[in-house]
Simulated scan of single mutants.
Amino acid sequence: MSVGTKPSHAPIALITGGSRGLGRATALALADRGVDVILTWRTGREEANAVVTAIQAKGRLAVALQLDVGKAGTFAAFASEVREALKQTWSRERFDYLVNNAGIGGYTPFIEASEATFDELVDVHFKGPFFLTQKLLPLMVDGGRIVNMSTGLARYVYPGFSVYAAVKGAVEVLTRALAVELGPRRIAVNVVAPGGIVTDFGGGVMQDPALQKVVAAETPLGRMGQPDDVAGVIAMLLAPETGWVTGQRIEVTGGYRL
């Protein structure tokens, strides 16, 4: 689904998992800042279309495309869809920003972790962003930006997140590598590491009032994080003023467990 009836010369951001949670908040925050959006969805078509409609209400252009980031074999076809969307909606060949946001929850005690669970988390959170970025790079402008998503769990430890946290740690290392390798194209690459955010991610575990009370008590700023807290940081990293920032990990946890 796309919206808009006139050409736009605004920057274009591609956000994976943009139909809900942090992806949705980021899409809307960027639209407020004059950025057009290509967002992806895996199963929530209606949710994605609702985000597109909300972006339209802000006067920006948007397209929603289906994508499963855990299936790297589909990325070449997806890149072709992006190329066509750019042509049809924007009369352009390239987009400006990539936000590798899509993901799944990953609570599994180490002793119980199966190879299937391990492979799924690697495919979605590491292999997916790795090869999706590779496939989309020819469609990105020189001087563009990439934001990857990690987790506060790559710094502090909760039992049951050994696989999830380790895979996100790999994303952080990849981010630094890309910052160096894509430097000649002036593409800045950074990683954002949220803490406990009140969304439906991971089955909505952070929506539990009892857990929220515990987390807030260990957070210097004294509350749970909200999607807009993270979306604002991502938008900051895509702003003109932060073009000299690359290869950095920005933690968004309210100071949790410092």
Rank of each mutant, 00 (worst) to 15 (best):
S2K: 14
S2N: 13
V3F: 07
P7N: 00
S8T: 02
S8M: 00
P11V: 04
I12D: 00
I15H: 11
I15A: 06
T16S: 05
G18V: 04
G18A: 04
G23Q: 08
R24G: 05
R24I: 06
A27Y: 11
L28S: 00
L28K: 12
R33T: 01
G34I: 03
V35L: 00
V37N: 14
V37G: 10
I38Y: 11
T40D: 14
G44K: 14
E47S: 02
A50P: 07
A50Q: 04
A50K: 06
V51Y: 10
T53H: 02
Q56E: 15
A57C: 08
A62F: 04
A64G: 12
A64V: 01
A64S: 12
L65A: 09
Q66P: 13
L67H: 07
V69C: 03
V69G: 04
K71C: 07
K71T: 12
K71A: 06
A72I: 14
A77Q: 14
A77T: 14
F78L: 03
S80G: 14
V82H: 10
R83P: 08
E84T: 15
L86S: 11
L86V: 03
K87Q: 14
Q88W: 09
T89G: 10
W90I: 10
W90A: 09
R92A: 10
R92T: 04
E93D: 12
F95P: 05
D96S: 09
Y97C: 06
V99T: 12
V99Q: 10
N100M: 01
N101A: 08
A102H: 13
G103E: 12
I104K: 07
I104H: 02
F110T: 15
I111H: 12
S114I: 06
V122L: 15
D123C: 02
K127I: 13
F131S: 02
T133W: 05
Q134W: 13
K135I: 06
K135R: 13
L136Y: 13
L136F: 10
L139Y: 08
L139W: 10
V141Y: 03
R145M: 07
I146L: 00
V147I: 15
V147K: 08
V147L: 11
M149W: 12
Y156R: 04
G160I: 12
V163P: 10
V163K: 05
Y164Q: 02
Y164K: 05
K168V: 11
V171Y: 09
V173R: 14
T175N: 12
R176P: 05
A177T: 15
L178I: 07
L178Q: 13
A179N: 04
A179R: 02
G183Y: 01
R185A: 01
I187A: 06
A188E: 14
V189P: 07
A193V: 08
A193E: 10
G196P: 12
F201R: 00
G203F: 00
G204Q: 01
V205G: 07
M206V: 01
M206D: 03
M206I: 00
L211M: 00
Q212N: 00
A216L: 04
A217F: 00
A217G: 03
E218F: 09
T219H: 00
L221S: 04
L221K: 01
D228H: 07
D229M: 05
G232P: 06
I234K: 00
A235M: 04
M236H: 09
L238Y: 11
P240K: 05
W244I: 02
T246I: 03
G247E: 12
R249P: 04
V252T: 06
V252H: 00
V252G: 07
T253P: 02
T253N: 06
G254D: 03
G254F: 01
G255I: 06
Y256Q: 05
R257F: 11
